[in-house]
């Protein structure tokens, strides 16, 4: 371990965990209401970022208007996906539903490549890249205090991500619609029998997931640039979701941050093979979770009844 690097890498890892948590939130939103694990979340995120870029750079709209338009369109995209692709799958076996979202991810990836091309785009900078925040930590190495540098874009995307999770969490906890969505996740037929429209709720959760994905896409694009590989963040978000628990909204933030932290800490190692393991760290964490606590940190343990 490079001890003087550990605080820096840990903090950077935690900050990088913000967008992971936001992506995980999109997955949990859909899973909570409809028991669908959305493998196309990464592509939704990519679509949101591309739409924002398209409005802001190609059409020269002000950034806030571009973001609003992209949010609106991605909510519509979420609704359309629910209506056209997932509703016919109601009551189908798990494999069909998983394959449907995988097929969606292929279609969206193909569409993104077809419409926007594979080139790297310059995404409008929202936070200045210069002037990173400097924080002096209480740790001392070689008689000098360790200073942690926080890039502005990473910091702010982290803040927005945490805020997003809190807002959605509050929505689920305190509003009537949120309660209806939680009820639907318990039992679809029961929810219908007390007069909840589960189609409306599925649609709403997909629209919300589209919005959350777009926010995540914009945050990632401002900090790391925009191209088609943006969608791979979702591959770090899957383990985050399982770590936090599939049905838990606070779990997404804990899971995302822990995944980011584990990647950051591994990167601080002196051994090159351990350092390189940062890219598969989410999946090593995932295997550990699956073996020791499959329901995740905050998930519900389901007992199988015959």
């Amino acid at each position: 371990m490079n001890w003087q690097l550990v605080p820096q890498f840990a903090i950077t890892g935690l900050l990088a965990g913000g967008p992971i948590a936001l992506t995980a939130l999109g997955l949990v939103l859909i899973f909570k209401s409809s028991y669908i694990f959305n493998f196309a979340q990464g592509q939704l995120l990519l679509m949101g970022a591309l739409l924002t870029w398209w409005f802001a750079v190609e059409h020269g709209l002000p950034l806030w208007m571009a973001i609003l338009l992209a949010l609106f369109l991605s909510a519509l995209l979420g609704l359309a996906i629910e209506r056209l692709a997932l509703r016919p799958m109601t009551g189908q076996p798990l494999l069909s539903i998983i394959l449907m979202t995988l097929a969606l991810s292929q279609v969206l990836q193909g569409l993104a490549l077809l419409l926007f091309g594979a080139t790297q785009r310059n995404f409008p900078q929202m936070f200045s890249a210069a002037n990173p925040y400097r924080i002096t930590t209480p740790f001392v190495y070689n008689d000098r205090p360790i200073v942690v540098i926080l890039k502005q874009n990473l910091t702010w995307s982290f803040v927005v991500a945490v805020l997003g999770v809190l807002v959605i969490g509050a929505f689920f906890r305190f509003t009537k619609t949120g309660l209806a969505m939680r009820g639907t996740s318990e039992d679809h037929e029961l929810a219908q029998s007390i007069g909840l429209s589960i189609h409306r709720i599925f649609g709403l959760s997909w629209a919300l997931a589209g919005v959350v994905a777009t926010v995540g896409g914009i945050l990632l694009a401002t900090s790391s640039g925009l191209d088609l590989s943006l969608s791979v963040v979702v591959l770090a978000a899957f383990p985050a979701v399982l770590l936090g628990g599939l049905e838990s909204i606070p779990g997404t933030i804990v899971g995302g941050l822990l995944i980011g932290l584990s990647q950051g800490l591994v990167s601080a190692s002196k051994v090159s093979i351990v350092r390189n393991a940062a890219e598969i760290m989410p999946y090593i964490v995932l295997l550990i979770v699956l073996v020791f606590r499959p329901e995740g940190l905050f998930g519900q343990k389901r007992i199988e009844r015959i």
């Binding site: 097929a103 969206l108 990836q109 490549l113 077809l114 091309g117 594979a118 080139t119």
Partner: peptide, 26 residues
């Protein structure tokens, strides 16, 4: 359309075919 159209058509064709099969001939 961008130069990558050929690479774009593969996932597009495959995804669409798979979706149609899942809905109409699972």
């Amino acid at each position: 359309t961008a130069a990558g159209a050929v690479q774009a058509l593969r996932p597009l064709f495959f995804g669409t075919a798979l979706m149609l099969f899942l809905i109409f001939e699972p």
